[in-house]
Write a protein that binds this DNA or RNA. Structure first.
Lengths: 337, 337
DNA sequence: GTAATAGTGTCTTTCAGACAGTATGAC
DNA sequence: GTCATACTGTCTGAAAGACACTATTAC
């Protein structure tokens, strides 16, 4: 690995690499400026009314990892294919929906004494969605409940215990420990960041601020709390970003149906939405909301043995894509703290 | 550049590069699998009630480019810093808001006869926002109206002329030219994609589907129409992604204020929102919307010489961040076609 | 005064959210 | 019959959207 001191800050105006390049010896630069690229996916599915995420290998108390792959230009046609192919090769699962999240530098903590001569690396995150029903390979793969890694995000049984009992008191300490220098350097105080992200002091819990909350917990050193499943730090971030994106998008695009079987009852649909977003709507209103907007249509069939009156089966009404600009389960954001 | 045939598809389960690496000779792989990384920004500002984008150099009828930089791990602390530093170095402008868009493989059209020995590359796009007021360096920099590159997106004076006159007829031809094979391979027909993206046949124009529309126009070969300013294809995509992101986010986050001076009249605020989104609201309702939600607060000052009655000046009310989960200019999506 | 822009009051429609109540199965 | 779940009807309050109207400047 050779250093490239000559390439420090320039004031001339270099045009960056054009679309069509022919002279690689000039354009590509020294290898020190080339990066390895990892592609990682948080693939989310629904099992037993729980949002679950596909993991790598088994989780016997060890640090869990998401499926990931090193991108190789000579092998993979695209970044997306790299992670798709990886999951097919390893588990025989073909992903349905896939969507890019963010790209970050790979974190490399400097090791004491050891000279870090690793190549600089990029990490591209993806959100994947998968329907488990009727997919034996997928059902055989290792999944874990998303909320084991982000337990403060699960509001289905009210405010999560871990928040009030463990995290909030320690977060308030963290906020109190802010130095004047830090306060002056940042636009928002630690306390205000807490108020916005964690809805303390009467704010509203914004279910989409998943990544922001993980950032704060990280900064406060609270991620290695005992109640939490361990996961590679960068992968937990990708999972948080995936959950945030899914929560945001489920409201505007018909993404829930990627998780459900083709036919489902309205109550199953509601349970699925609530597994992702938290409890939002009374049953009656949810029905009206989702039927009234033309998002689903009855198949005429019913499901018996529900424990009570048989439930009508519904299917996603694809035509809604042509009718409404942003079809999704339009439940409101924000809830009382 | 050496080939690495041994690295083709594997069925074993390789763990991808861990967080902390020590042995670079094993982990980094051959240089063939390392990528050059470009970082490109669509920096948007407001000038004379027009949304403008910062461009590279002058545009004398040539193909326009956005500011971009090759990421160098030894120079730039982060991807974001790479583009920030670039814009400071070249134009002396310090960006305010910045946000990552998507990461794609750099397009490399194979040249006839020429052996393409370029390194594979990634391109990371960014959206930047800038306030021109009181920023001499920024005012001196070269800007162009965003809608010169995406004229079909400007609905401020009603349905854009270029749509009905030039694009739609040719798009319908394109839709009619769909082969049965293509139809079978894709979930949506060309015609349905048109209906969704371009709101033909009574659909609603979804102002956030900017990238989708550019994709279709590209596929139909319509981007090099004469009425359009030429821009590097990959940069036009980044601009489209930036506009889409800005349109989506302006509704949920107080982003408009990054474009406006600290004090402004409500009409100026409305004009700014409309420059980005298109005409959405009657003046009276816009006032109520934006004042009623506590997004802005009167400073007590007025602006005279407006041509009529003096207008009260307002400023962004930062406290709204603490009160509401998703504060933004909550105008509705979708409009009649 | 007129012209032009700024700003207010109010009506209607829509819809989220909550309530009470009915329907149909398993047992 | 009871119990549990599925489903329907209706009320209320908030807010979107449209309209008519008043206010304050420049000229």
């Amino acid at each position: 690995m050779q250093d490239d001191i000559s390439s420090s800050r320039r004031s001339r105006v270099p045009s960056c690499a054009g679309e069509f390049r022919q002279d690689s010896s000039i354009e590509t630069g020294p290898s020190a400026d080339r990066m390895t690229v990892d592609v990682t996916a948080a693939v989310i599915a629904l099992r037993d009314e729980q949002p679950v995420v596909l993991i790598q290998g088994k989780a016997d108390g060890e640090t869990v990892a998401l499926p990931c792959e090193s991108y190789r230009a000579c092998v993979h046609a695209s970044l997306e294919d790299a992670i798709r192919d990886r999951i097919v090769a390893q588990m025989g699962i073909r992903l349905g929906y896939i969507e890019q999240l963010t790209t970050d530098l790979k974190t490399q903590a400097p090791e004491r004494g050891a000279l870090m001569r690793t190549a600089p690396g990029l990490s591209v995150g993806y959100l994947g969605l998968l329907r488990l029903e009727g997919n034996a390979a997928a059902q055989a793969a290792p999944w874990m409940n998303c909320y084991e890694f982000l337990p403060w995000e699960d509001w289905r049984r009210g405010r999560p215990e871990i928040l009030s009992a463990t995290l909030l008191p320690r977060l308030l300490e963290w906020a109190a420990g802010e130095t004047p220098q830090e306060r002056a350097a940042s636009e928002l105080s630690r306390h205000d960041r807490l108020r916005i992200a964690f809805a303390i002091e009467g704010g509203k819990w914004d279910d989409e601020r998943v990544a922001e909350r993980l950032d704060i917990l990280d900064a406060a050193g609270l991620v290695p709390v005992s109640a939490l499943r361990q996961m590679r730090a960068d992968h937990r971030r990708i999972l948080a970003a995936a959950l945030a994106r899914l929560r945001a998008k489920i409201r505007n695009r018909p993404l829930v149906f990627e998780l459900l079987p083709p036919e489902f009852t309205l109550f199953e649909l509601q349970k699925t939405v609530e597994a992702i977003l938290g409890p939002h709507l009374h049953k009656q209103n949810f029905r009206r909301l989702v039927e009234g907007t033309g998002l689903v249509v009855s198949t005429g069939e019913v499901r018996t043995h529900t424990g009570g009156r048989p439930a009508k089966l519904f299917r996603f009404r694809r035509e809604v894509l042509l009718e409404r600009p942003a079809p999704g389960v339009r439940v409101k954001a924000g809830r009382a703290a």
